[in-house]
């Protein structure tokens, strides 16, 4: 991750995840996505907004399975939107910590 090039007003951990999920703003998401080489579209936002809302409700980052079951974005599409490792990329861009789940 090219975090050195990121100029963000918030604290990131060693792996580039937001230390405090409450610091998150859509602008920060745009910058984190750009750092991952992703330009955010409406479909990306559908995933990110679901993840943020679900996290606010449950206090846990949703698993990819939960995302694909409930956000209206299929597994195939999720892997296209966030290529090469969607679990970490979705969590990072949505301002959550590194995911720990197995599914």
């Amino acid at each position: 991750m090219a975090t050195a090039t990121l100029d963000l007003p918030v604290e990131l951990d060693a792996e580039g995840f937001l230390v405090n999920p409450n610091d998150w703003t859509p602008e920060i998401a745009e910058k984190l996505a750009a750092d991952e080489g992703i330009e955010l579209t409406d479909r990306h936002w559908q995933v990110i907004n679901f993840v943020r809302e679900d996290f606010a409700k449950t206090g846990e980052p949703p698993t990819l399975r939960r995302i694909t079951k409930q956000s209206g974005v299929s597994t195939k599409e999720l892997y296209q939107l966030f290529p090469k490792g969607p679990a970490k990329k979705v969590a990072r861009i949505a301002g959550l910590g590194k995911p720990k789940g197995c599914i």
Binding site: L64, K84, G85, C102
Partner: peptide, 10 residues
């Protein structure tokens, strides 16, 4: 589980 975890992390 391992195959899925592998794909999830790229």
């Amino acid at each position: 589980v391992l195959a899925n975890a592998a794909r999830m992390m790229g």
